[in-house]
C-alpha cells in the first residue's frame, strides 16, 4: 500500500516539476534605436496545446503494468508504437491539431501598438513541456512608438 502511495506521489512530483521551456527558434528584426530605446516595450503571446498520444500510451501502459495488468500494458504500448509510426517525421514540439494559431499575430501586435510604429521585434518559438501535453508558444517582444 505504502509502495503504491510512494509511486503515486513520485508520479505527481514528476508531473508538477517537469515543466520545462524549450526554445526552438529566435529571430530579431530590424531595429530603429529611437523606438527601441525610448518607446514602450510590449509582449504578445499566442499558443496552442500540443498533445502526445505516444506519451499518453506510455503512461497508460506504465499505470497498467503497475497495477499488475501486463496484458493490457502490452496492448496499450502496441497502440502507442503504431501511432508513433504515423507521427514520424520532422516536427517542432508536440503535435497540435492546428498550426494556424499564430496566423493573426499581426493583429495582436497592432492591438498592443495601435500606431503601428513598432521596431526591434524579437520572435521566439518555444514550447512549455509537460508530460503528455505541451504549450506550443509563439512569443513576440517589440517596442512601440506611441
Amino acid at each position: 500500500m505504502m509502495t503504491r502511495m510512494k509511486k503515486i506521489l513520485l508520479s505527481l512530483c514528476l508531473v508538477v516539476f517537469s515543466g520545462c521551456a524549450f526554445m526552438h527558434h529566435t529571430q530579431i528584426g530590424e531595429i530603429d534605436s529611437s523606438i527601441v530605446l525610448r518607446g514602450q516595450r510590449f509582449e504578445v503571446l499566442v499558443n496552442e496545446t500540443g498533445f502526445s498520444t505516444q506519451e499518453l500510451a506510455s503512461t497508460g501502459a506504465a499505470i497498467a503494468r503497475a497495477s499488475g495488468n501486463s496484458q493490457s500494458a502490452n496492448e496499450i504500448q502496441g497502440v502507442g508504437e503504431i501511432i508513433a509510426l504515423f507521427q514520424m517525421g520532422p516536427k517542432t514540439g508536440k503535435p497540435t491539431f492546428t498550426d494556424q494559431y499564430a496566423d493573426n499575430i499581426y493583429y495582436a501586435i497592432l492591438d498592443k501598438c495601435p500606431s503601428g510604429r513598432v521596431s526591434g521585434i524579437t520572435s521566439i518559438r518555444e514550447m512549455a513541456h509537460y508530460p503528455i501535453v505541451s504549450g506550443e508558444i509563439v512569443k513576440i517582444i517589440g517596442y512601440c512608438k506611441r
Binding site: 530579431i28 530590424e30 531595429i31 526591434g120
Partner: peptide
C-alpha cells in the same frame, strides 16, 4: 534587441 539598440543609440540596425 534593447542591448543591440544601446550599441547604436542614434541610428538603425
Amino acid at each position: 534587441a534593447f542591448r543591440l539598440a544601446n550599441q547604436c543609440p542614434n541610428g538603425k540596425i
